[in-house]
Simulated assay, not measured.
Amino acid sequence: MSNRSLMFLVAAGIWLQADVARADAIDGDWCSTDGKRMSIRAEQITTPGGKQISGNYSRHAFDYVVPAGEEGAGEFVNIILQSEYLALSRQGLAGGPFREWHRCKDTIS
């Protein structure tokens, strides 16, 4: 195997591994069908109301308390990654309805 072929294989492996890492984590930008957006980056979230706060993070789930000034302030929100492109959230301890979140399409500015 030539050095050029080996370099190509290593580069392809790194590229594929980066894509798999994103798919296997809740981190990223999420959009709901009703036009809301949120962004999760490790322990930080930009909530659908636009506030940047900390929450409880694991690779496949995230939860936080809705901050003051947002609808449902003080309620608990739990978000669970279902697949690479789908997450479900539920707000309130009384078992409110699930909201679907899909990875936002990349935008070009």
Rank of each mutant, 00 (worst) to 15 (best):
Q82P: 04
G74K: 08
Q82M: 11
I14A: 09
L88N: 11
A23V: 03
E75M: 12
I26K: 02
Y57M: 12
F62T: 09
M38V: 00
K105L: 04
V66Q: 15
E70P: 02
S58R: 14
F98R: 15
I79E: 06
A18E: 04
L88W: 13
R22S: 07
A11M: 03
L6Q: 06
D34Q: 08
Y85V: 07
D63Q: 14
I45P: 09
I26N: 02
W101M: 09
P67S: 06
G92S: 10
G35S: 05
A73P: 12
D63C: 09
R41P: 00
L88V: 15
K51I: 00
Q17W: 05
V66I: 15
N3Y: 11
I108L: 07
S39T: 05
Q44N: 08
M1D: 10
G55C: 10
S39Y: 02
S39C: 03
S32N: 01
H60Y: 10
C104A: 10
C104Q: 07
D63T: 14
H60K: 14
I108S: 06
S58C: 07
L9T: 03
M1E: 10
F98W: 12
I53Q: 10
E84Y: 04
F62I: 09
L16G: 13
C104K: 07
I14M: 06
Q91A: 15
G96L: 04
C31K: 01
